[in-house]
Design a protein around this nucleic acid. Structure first.
Lengths: 195, 195
DNA sequence: TCCCTCATGTAAAAGGTTACATGATTTA
DNA sequence: TAAATCATGTAACCTTTTACATGAGGGA
């Protein structure tokens, strides 16, 4: 089984969905850290069904094409449950911007600070969106997050990391940009005297 | 050009290396957020050379096989410099453990807390290693990080994010584990009375 | 003798993205 | 009339991982 398969099972364990709906959900990464496109999702659903982990029923619609609504089976739920706690290696994270930072010393500081300011902004915006969701949960729920056997706790846990991640990332971008801007200002003050 | 190509150029811009040495470096991700295997690196070096971005010379060794030492060309340096500040989409991060957390509500809390404690430990260990490197830099350098046109600043910037990332991640794992353990303790106190 | 490191590659398979393909309905 | 949404798929391509392949030298 692939990770994508478990991602789909994770959604279907909460509620039945069509392939199209699953694809919509996975445009923005579920749990904030996994995404996929419809071209990958449709074949994967077929594989899951072949393994008896999901079923589908055709739902007729007026004014829209029919859809196939997928439901998780008890076997699918078991497979998902086992996967959640199975041993796992620490995966290496991949991030292009950080890789670029590794060669930042070669770049023009002004151009570079622009790039990092742009990314700072994007991550701040994402952070605000996540914080708004958290705010809503806080208002509605209160102590509800304590129930670790409810999907709401799981969602809240991933949201909490998402917030921490965006906060860390945006602050790092800002710090890098500030360093670049300070260096640039210093260069302008003393055009050709250093150390 | 692929991102891997720029990753290799980023290393070669600092110092010439053989394919084998590059592969060693990229076992642990460079800039803490990009890794690759030798099977990907050797063909990529050939492509870079075909594009005139790197050159190699054969270096004979006693007691070891000959090696091809690659050097970045002025064209390679230019390509790298331009890439660093080029516009870039925010890439979606991928993380299996966080995806698992999304289905945590299905799992056995004891088994799950074990998984999260294991990952907490691993990230704490990584954090300690990074902090040790940072400590060394602080002692040796002092104000050296200010020079944004030195490779040391770039390395320091990526290290800073690496530390923040490991701290965030390990604390999140601990928090999740604590929630699971508290719920488990509560269940033991009152075996079948809730609310 | 067997395994590890050094050193460089290729091949096959898996995972993921982009593009192709179709067709109805609604909104601008 | 054109674009967007709903709905489901396939094909080609690119990237990455795993496995195959070879061979010398050093240490247990």
């Amino acid at each position: 089984m692939t990770i994508l398969g478990y991602a789909l099972l994770g959604l279907l364990a909460r509620e039945p969905f069509s392939g199209y709906e699953l694809a919509q959900k996975m445009k923005a990464p579920i749990s904030f850290f996994w995404h996929a496109k419809h071209s990958q999702i449709y074949p994967e659903l077929a594989k899951l069904e072949a393994q008896g982990l999901v079923n589908h029923e055709r739902v007729e619609q007026q004014e829209h094409p029919d859809k196939k609504v997928y439901t998780i089976t008890p076997a699918g739920r078991d497979a998902l449950r086992q996967w959640v706690t199975a041993p796992m290696e620490v995966p290496h994270a991949r991030d292009e911007l950080i890789l670029r930072a590794y060669s930042l010393w070669l770049a023009d500081p002004q151009e570079a600070s622009l790039l990092f300011r742009t990314h700072e902004q994007r991550h701040v915006e994402q952070l605000r969106r996540y914080e708004a969701v958290q705010q809503k949960i806080m208002e509605e729920a209160g102590a509800l997050q304590q129930q670790v056997d409810s999907p709401d706790f799981s969602s809240y846990a991933t949201l909490a990391l998402g917030i921490g991640y965006e906060r860390l990332y945006s602050e790092w971008c800002r710090w890098v940009a500030e360093q670049l801007e300070q260096a640039d200002a210093t260069t302008l003050e003393k055009p050709s005297s250093s150390g």
